[in-house]
Amino acid sequence: MTGRVWALAASVFLDALRRKVVWVVVLFAAVMAAAIPALPSYGFGVVEAVYREVALALTYLATMVLTLSLAANRIPAEIERRTVYGVLVRSVRRWEYLLGTWLGIFVTVGAAVFAFTVVDVVVGWLAYGELMFRLAEGTFAILLEAGVVAAFCVAVSSVIGPVVVVVSALAFVFLAHTRSQLLVPEDILWRLYPSLDALNIINPVAHGGGVSVGYIFSMLLVFVGWTGILLLVSTALFSRRDL
């Protein structure tokens, strides 16, 4: 089972490495990160925090663009081109196919996020003489959210085309970060609301002292829970589909 999932993930990763969109997004993000220090300064001691905030926002944007471009059309294209036939006529269960596809996208996005992090830290060091390793906490949270968004795309795209996938994924991300605007913790719906706010740690990373190891562990739990549920949903939907 593991071998098949990893083989699928590896093929998705190798395929992604030859996609121009991946390199364009990575290069664009790197160039933008290098340009951040040219932004207006806000005063001694604040400029590094502004850099960190903008760098994380840029990383978030680039990561989401990359995730959507890889995940929204992966399964619809495989179904349309029928490359999925060659996979599913083997001893591959549909959930293995979905998990392998998601894992390949996640690993690809992970490699890109690692590159973004390196660029952010290097640019920060060159511009401000400070090695901002704390940025890695923020980019790790971004990667986890990208993993959830990729799982959402896999679930929706197992039954519908890429345009609807992108629109619904954007709506999902928007809704998942608006709980505190719509509800207060005392509301009954607070605990039931599908929120990804736990993964938004730009503020403590950019302006504070980062987050604790315990909090990182709780982010992992949120990530595993969301991803697990979405992949289960995608398996339920895709298993019923005639190809």
Binding site: L14, R18, R82, T83, Y85, V89
Partner: peptide
């Protein structure tokens, strides 16, 4: 299906591999 081979009418492979 591990013991089954399949050849389709059209060669359906990822063009980037």
């Amino acid at each position: 299906r591990a013991k089954v081979g399949f050849l389709a009418e059209q060669p359906y492979f990822s063009p980037l591999l």
